[in-house]
């Protein structure tokens, strides 16, 4: 009878507080401001969790996997590039995007390896503490829950950043060695923005796995749920978007407007998938010649020099929505996780 675990009892340490102007405590139980900074202890959590990540076997396996992928694909790309004689101002970016049978390009590997790393980093973040029975002990220390959750997220995020930056530098280094020429300024900026996009693409999956680790008590369930969502977006979302577009905007008489409307709706829907956003951002950044992701009518192309690269600022403008979308997705999922965690009862 006592084993009730109501979802909606609000723990007292949930809302970041302001300093109260009245130290008197005679008011009935309320949700008025609480004292002290919600960030107390944040760095202790971040450093501890990051140390855990970096020394874990799980992380080592993933690192080996991704380093092998990077080395393999870049080597293949260099082989291809060496045989090309035509002049290309963005040779360096080709390192990331050139595929050579049977290997796909490095970026295609990244688009499904990054979610995997991200999920592996956080699927047991909260429920792991719960199952080890360390949660109540840690929360009995003078910190707020905010610090614990934020610390866990930041630790994973920094670990992801560290790993991706290392790989990014590795590829550039291999490129300089293998191709014998340094990247130019614009290439560096484009490649760096691509790194940022990749990190936030990972951030979405980090936050998603964190949500599941808060909702599900079993880490295995959380991992499976995260992977299910990932597979859904990678494999099925494109199909779903097409089908929904066909239902909502059916082609009845075959007018060009109808075709266009349906295709645009399908594209809009597809952009709800972080994969679509990431692939578009990657295209815009690493293929300077890409000038639009939408549908271009022949009339709009009048006077355009097809194949000529866009200047850097125009490319950035093109992929700006995608980048903000990725960042927003990360923040939204984290906010959801935060709300869920604050409402959770900590007793077993």
């Amino acid at each position: 009878m006592s084993m009730l675990k109501p979802a909606l009892s609000l723990p007292s340490d949930q809302i970041p507080g302001k300093q109260s102007d009245q130290p008197q405590v005679t008011q009935p139980a309320t949700r008025r401001g609480r004292e002290g900074s919600p960030w107390t202890g944040l760095w202790a959590v971040v450093t501890k969790d990051m140390a855990d990540h970096l020394t874990s076997t799980r992380m080592r396996i993933l690192e080996i996997l991704i380093v092998l992928t990077a080395a393999g694909t870049v080597y293949a790309a260099m082989q291809t590039l060496r045989t090309t004689v035509s002049e290309d101002p963005f040779l360096f970016l080709k390192l990331f995007t050139t595929a050579r049978d049977p290997l796909p390009a490095f970026v295609s590997f990244l688009s499904f390896l990054v979610p995997l790393i991200a999920i592996a980093l956080t699927f047991d973040a909260v429920n792991g503490e719960f199952n080890q029975r360390t949660l109540s002990r840690v929360l009995a220390q003078p910190i707020y829950r905010d610090a614990l959750l934020m610390g866990k997220f930041l630790a994973s995020f920094f670990t992801l950043t560290l790993v991706l930056t290392a790989i990014w530098l590795l590829i550039i280094g291999l490129g300089i060695l293998g191709l014998g020429l340094p990247p130019n300024g614009e290439e560096v900026v484009r490649a760096f923005t691509f790194l940022i996009a990749t990190i936030f693409y990972g951030g979405i999956w980090l936050a998603l796995a964190l949500v599941f680790s808060t909702v599900f008590r079993q880490p295995a369930t959380a991992a499976l749920a995260s992977i299910a969502v990932w597979l859904f977006f990678i494999i099925f979302w494109g199909i779903v978007a097409d089908v929904v577009a066909q239902v909502i905007r059916p082609i009845t008489i075959g007018m060009p407007q109808e075709l266009l409307a349906q295709a645009e709706l399908a594209q809009t829907l597809a952009r709800f998938s972080p994969n679509t956003l990431y692939v578009e951002a990657m295209m815009g950044l690493l293929h300077p010649a890409v000038r639009s992701f939408g549908f271009v009518l022949p009339s709009e192309l009048q006077g355009a020099m097809l194949g000529a690269p866009l200047p850097l600022d125009q490319s950035l403008l093109l992929i700006w929505p995608q980048i903000t979308g990725l960042i927003a997705g990360t923040l939204l999922l984290f906010a959801l996780c935060y709300t869920l965690f604050q409402r959770q009862e900590i007793r077993a």
């Binding site: 609000l10 507080g17 405590v25 139980a29």
Partner: peptide
């Protein structure tokens, strides 16, 4: 008493602090 669960009503003081509003003071 530790401020890890919010009370529905009533009053608590631990070492002169209210665990619901000054949980860090109490937990320290």
């Amino acid at each position: 008493l530790l401020g890890l669960t919010e009370r529905t009503s009533g009053r608590v003081q631990v070492l002169g602090f209210d665990p619901a509003r000054q949980p860090l003071q109490v937990k320290a």
